[in-house]
Amino acid sequence: MNIIETKSLCKIFRDTAQEVYAVNNVDLSITAGEFTAIVGPSGSGKTTLLNMIGGLDTPTSGSIIVDGKDISTLSENETTAFRLHHIGFVFQAYNLIPVLSAKENVSFIMELQGRPKAEIDSRASELLGAVGLADRMDSRPAKLSGGQQQRVAVARALASRPRFVLADEPTANLDSKSAANLLDIMVKLNEQEGVTFIFSTHDPRIVAKARRIITLEDGGIVSDRSV
């Protein structure tokens, strides 16, 4: 079953001199449980595509159907609420809230969702345990390494029980050991719990683990292969 479907998706950036097609006529379907890498050179449109799928950016034309809903037609507030309940995000620079502990960062999303306190508490602990940070729950981001912060970010992305997780260059700021560790965790979550991951990446280790690789060039899909 498709959880994401884009139809003739375009994003054009205009300046006074010219129009640049960041995403050019992309038709894409993602099914539940995929572990998909979107690859391509810098400027190929990976991040723009991911932003549009995540409802962070609006397409110039075309549609994005997530869970049967065209999110390009939603209002700003509706899109934000949609992201909260349907999409998990992992950013390149971790982007944890610095004044909150690891557990509070994970709990934050569920608090926004208005979940009961007991559920928030147990799920945050469970997720941090799953990413190997049971002993660092009360640490603030500044006290965690880059790899640990990114694992908290993964736990945060999963906290809302999203339909899929979008990860934009999640290993780009990590050393190889931390990157490998993070990747193992995401593969495990995908295989054992069926979490759908979509990455934009340059990292060959992610590409090697991915079961589907979509290659972009100049905003268009030049290859889409399952491995």
């Binding site: 995540g54 962070l56 700003e76 507030n77 934000t80 609420a81 992201r83 909260l84 309940h85 995000f89 950013f91 982007n95 809230i97 610095p98 934050f108 999303i109 926004l112 969702q113 945060r156 809302s160």
Partner: peptide
């Protein structure tokens, strides 16, 4: 600003 962007991205309404 960056932190605000992240909070909105992960689902916090601007008014909140």
């Amino acid at each position: 600003r960056r932190e605000f962007c992240v909070m909105i991205s992960v689902g916090m309404q601007r008014w909140r």
